[in-house]
C-alpha cells in the first residue's frame, strides 16, 4: 500500500497542475481512508472542482471538502500609515 504522505503529495500536485483547478494553497491531509481538503478559495465552483480533482486522483479515499469561501464584499476600514 502506498504511504499516505505520497498520496497527499500527489493530490496536492493534481490540485495545482490540473487545468480545472490550478490552486496552489490547498492543504491535503490523509488519515486512514479519509482525505481532508483545507484552505480558502473565492468561489464555490472552484471548491467543487477541487473536491472533484481530489476524488479523481485518490478514488479509494473518502474526500472531506473543508475548503472555505472568502466572500469579499466590503472594503472595510482604512489603514493610516503615518
Amino acid at each position: 500500500m502506498e504511504a499516505p504522505q505520497y498520496v497527499a503529495a500527489r493530490v496536492q500536485q493534481a490540485l495545482a497542475e490540473d487545468g480545472r483547478t490550478n490552486e496552489l494553497g490547498i492543504r491535503v491531509d490523509i488519515r486512514g481512508d479519509q482525505l481532508f481538503l483545507r484552505g480558502q478559495v473565492s468561489e464555490a465552483e472552484q471548491r467543487t472542482r477541487l473536491g472533484q480533482v481530489a476524488h479523481e486522483t485518490a478514488p479509494e479515499l473518502h474526500v472531506h471538502n473543508e475548503i472555505n469561501i472568502v466572500d469579499a464584499t466590503e472594503p472595510g476600514e482604512d489603514e493610516h500609515l503615518d
Binding site: 480558502q40 472568502v70 469579499a72 466590503e74 472594503p75 472595510g76 482604512d78 489603514e79 493610516h80 500609515l81
Partner: peptide, 21 residues
C-alpha cells in the same frame, strides 16, 4: 519600509485602503 500582504484571502475583503500621510 512598511510591507502589506494584500492577497485577497488575507484581506478577506474586496480590497484594503491604505492612507499615506
Amino acid at each position: 519600509i512598511r510591507v502589506r500582504n494584500v492577497a485577497l484571502p488575507v484581506l478577506g475583503r474586496a480590497y484594503g485602503v491604505y492612507c499615506l500621510e
